[in-house]
């Protein structure tokens, strides 16, 4: 997050050369440098509000082309293609589900093996103790169950949920994100982030409203 880049900032000692790539040249006054810090530490991002999902999708595409990478969208319903435009390419949940399923399969299998072969070896209808075809349903169900748990659990964990408060809740009109409005937020920790540029850019994408989101 933004604060991670500015560990020294709270001490207020070294504001002469902020490691902020958005600014050009090296002729910063103290006031300018302080403003740059404010951009990084005081703002969550700039948010744009749209009334049409296609406008949002179009804006996300333009933001991509403009080179912004740290952004998120908030919509009342899933929008096809939006995740791709936002470059949310994170494989950790699928892989968690895969290994959860694998563990579930092994666990279901080993559990039955322990019961049927080791702990309570019982001849059923002359079949071998390791009557593996009959172990398929339980192993299969355990695979599905654990893959589901791993997917839901890793999703909650990696998203940092449950999380009672998020800065974007304070954005103007944000209560309509669950009703009929579509939001695109370019976040302050984007390498290209510069308040006026981002706001101008978002207005140019045909947003109904553009506003700052405080931390």
């Amino acid at each position: 997050m933004a604060s991670g880049n500015n560990n020294g900032a709270p001490f207020g000692l070294d504001k002469h050369e902020p490691d902020h790539v958005g600014h050009d040249g090296g002729h910063h006054s103290h006031a300018q440098a302080y403003e740059a810090e404010q951009e990084l530490t005081g703002l969550h991002g700039i948010i744009a509000e749209y009334h049409d999902p296609d406008d949002l999708l179009h804006a996300a595409r333009l933001a991509n082309e403009a080179g912004y990478t740290k952004m998120d969208a908030y919509t009342p319903m899933p929008i096809h293609g939006l995740a791709e435009e936002l470059h949310h390419e994170d494989d950790r949940v699928p892989w968690s589900a895969f290994f959860g399923g694998l563990l579930g399969c092994l666990g279901g299998w080993m559990g039955q093996y322990y019961v049927a072969v080791v702990d309570y070896a019982w001849n059923v209808g002359g079949k071998p103790l390791l009557s593996w075809p009959q172990m398929i349903p339980v192993a299969y169900e355990m695979t599905i169950l654990n893959a589901g748990f791993a997917a839901a659990g890793s999703m909650l964990f990696l998203n940092g949920l449950p999380r009672p408060y998020h800065p974007v809740f304070g954005a103007k009109n944000f209560e309509r994100a669950t009703v009929d409005r579509f939001f695109l937020c370019i976040e302050a920790h984007d390498p290209q982030f510069e308040t006026t540029d981002v706001a101008r850019f978002l207005r140019s994408t045909g947003a109904d409203n553009v506003s700052e989101v405080a931390k």
């Binding site: 209808g125 079949k127 075809p133 009959q134 398929i136």
Partner: peptide
């Protein structure tokens, strides 16, 4: 495939 094989395996 499994349903058919499983039922016949159980019934034997």
């Amino acid at each position: 495939s499994v349903s058919q094989a499983l039922i016949y395996w159980s019934g034997n």
